[in-house]
Design a protein around this nucleic acid. Structure first.
Lengths: 133, 133
DNA sequence: CTTGAGCTTCCAGCAACTGGAAGGCCTATA
DNA sequence: TATAGGCCTTCCAGTTGCTGGAAGCTCAAG
């Protein structure tokens, strides 16, 4: 398979696939003409990576996951710990975003949003303490 | 004020303050010796920026917010629209993260996490369809 | 033989800083 | 007065995960 085909089948853009080779997540062979040759195992790895990235794992986590996947002597505890840490990080991010949302929502709601310059959003940002509702 | 003082008072690290000058969010004066001189208005702007960044606004949004703040002929509708868009983006991100969390949580729960290699997390990533529970 | 699609490499840029090196300045104390 | 330290300066590089674009080679079709 050439890169275009693999891109279609894996759902990853060619640029990304080349990048993954660059950082040595995959190691496709080469044709005599310099073209990359992808085998089923390469495609499989790329799909694995795509899925892991969709779940938000970092590239370095992906590298570890891939190596665990290929290591028949792995302990599932290692995988679980990695996933658990990631889950915790995601939960932290959600909390942060929720805090932002809460504040923003209040500010947006309190702004009349017309042609007058008066604006509680800017007031808040500039450090004025909000009027008690 | 020197940068250290401003850093303390604004809560932003000196590096970040220099960076903000670099991208022309602020324009502090200079002493003869080359040191930056910050006035109250600079400090005020930095606090504004810090707060806006905490709410997740991008630097470019911050630039716009700052210019709106300083524009007495602004219409609050402009500010509100910006904040509303940002709020929408945050909500999108939260949705994404929640989707990740849901999947991850299931996977983590289904993994026994012991010394055996068998692992539903890796199975999922590798494209095996999950066994119906 | 030419055209166009597909492939190659390499370089640059995004966001928003952050770390570190090399060196100037300022103040206090011995 | 010398020096030590702490603060300041600039500049360069690195972070994460790609993405865009340029220049150029290859391949298949007409």
């Amino acid at each position: 398979m050439n890169i275009g085909e693999v891109a279609k089948r894996s759902g990853l853009p060619p640029k990304t696939i080349r990048y993954y080779e660059d950082i040595e997540l995959i190691r496709p062979m080469r044709h005599d003409n310099g073209y990359r040759v992808f085998r089923e195992t390469d495609l499989h790895k790329l799909a694995f990576l795509g899925r892991a990235r969709t779940l938000g794992f970092s590239i370095e986590d992906c590298r570890i996951l891939l190596s665990l996947y290929e290591d028949e002597t792995r302990e599932s505890a290692q995988v679980k710990a990695l996933a658990q840490d990631h889950l915790t990080a995601i939960n932290d991010k959600i909390s942060q975003l929720r805090a932002m949302r809460e504040t923003l929502q209040e500010l947006v709601q309190s702004c009349h949003g017309d042609d007058r310059p008066d604006c509680p959003i800017l007031s808040d940002l500039s450090g004025e303490t909000a009027d008690p509702v």
